[in-house]
Design a protein around this nucleic acid. Structure first.
Lengths: 204, 204
DNA sequence: GTCTATACACTGATAGAC
DNA sequence: GTCTATCAGTGTATAGAC
């Protein structure tokens, strides 16, 4: 009944969809949502326009798909760090290491750039902001961790929510700087992030 | 010869151009360069399409004009801080205060958002990045200041260039966070920025 | 012959420009 | 207000596996 082997068929689908997704990631990361045209994705992926619309119903859904993947990559990094055995402070150190590696040196780094694009242009894409808020809940895991590390004296004093925001600000700020300084990652280390939260005072 | 008093004429020009610039600032800050249409600027400013093109040759030049103003606002804040009498550390503290006030509470805060838009979408606007690099030289004033404050023991140890980047990253990162958390500025203070550079260790 | 991945010319809408 | 280019999205045809 099936005209082609179902297995082979699935493989073809996966390959084509991956091609499109990969090309879209590169183009969206560079030009932003509105700055990207379907034509660019078509040319960058090497497939036809018809095929793009065969796999995705609209430009908007392609972007949403990338944001979905980006949130997965981010979430995975966070969960992996927090699953590390050890103290709260060790988990924070692990988080810095994994975020540094994933966002600045990995093949996945473009996902973090696309997230930046979503944050700065999200207002003109209906539902995007709500989507990110819903699926980005893992950011909320940091404040309690900071609170714990404060009690053990390893984290510096201050409102854990503010410190968490500052930590995220440094991370996102560096992702921004990376856009125009491609070897920034050779100048900084995971410690650059961790240091923001570290208790360097005398009351250890 | 002049059908209208020249003075009155100049005034009209200034008013119209200000109207357009102000509206453009708001729309570009919210939707980004590509996400903004001339129609939006026209409707937001209340002037006619023709008038917009009377004062600006293209959408691109409107954006460049805003970036020009944004760099001026930023430069003014930096120069004002560094002209403060006092030690290097006191100048850094002043810089944090002025940046906080200007970027988070001022009417000028939108200029910092537009700069973010320029950074994330600049690759698709020819010449923009070079323009920012040329006119944003005042950022280079921070590392020597940090170096001085390290010698007096007030700034923490570390490569001044990296510390300067981290300072800018925190600042830009918070500008990003502000996009979706309108009363973020009530939770943080200028100290949040200064703290990144402060020597909190025992070897004062 | 049937099914599905793929191609591409086309359309209507809307953008920037003047 | 009008013009023209280009955008997102579609309708239809083809190629090839079974």
């Amino acid at each position: 009944m099936s005209p082609r082997g179902q297995e082979r068929n699935e493989k073809m689908r996966a390959i084509a969809k991956t091609k499109i997704t990969k090309a879209a990631l590169e183009v969206f990361a560079e030009y932003g949502y509105h700055g990207t045209t379907i034509k660019q994705i078509v040319q960058s992926s090497g497939v036809s326009k018809g095929l793009v619309y065969h796999y995705f119903p609209s430009k908007e859904r392609i972007f949403f798909h990338l944001i979905e993947l980006a949130l997965e990559v981010s979430k995975k990094a966070w969960i992996k760090s927090l699953d590390t055995p050890g103290t709260a402070w060790q988990k924070i150190e692990k988080l810095s290491q994994i975020l540094f590696k994933t966002a600045f040196t990995d093949e996945n780094s473009l996902y973090f750039v696309v997230m930046l694009q979503a944050i700065t242009q999200g207002k003109s894409i209906p539902g995007l902001f709500e989507y990110i808020m819903m699926h980005g809940a893992h950011y909320g895991l940091l404040p309690p961790l900071i609170h714990k590390a404060q009690k053990s004296g390893e984290a510096r004093q201050g409102d854990p929510d503010v410190l968490s925001s500052t930590y995220l600000a440094v991370f996102q700020g560096y992702t921004l700087l990376l856009l125009h300084d491609k070897d920034l990652h050779t100048k900084i280390t995971p410690e650059t992030f961790t240091d923001v939260l570290r208790n360097r005072g005398r009351n250890k």
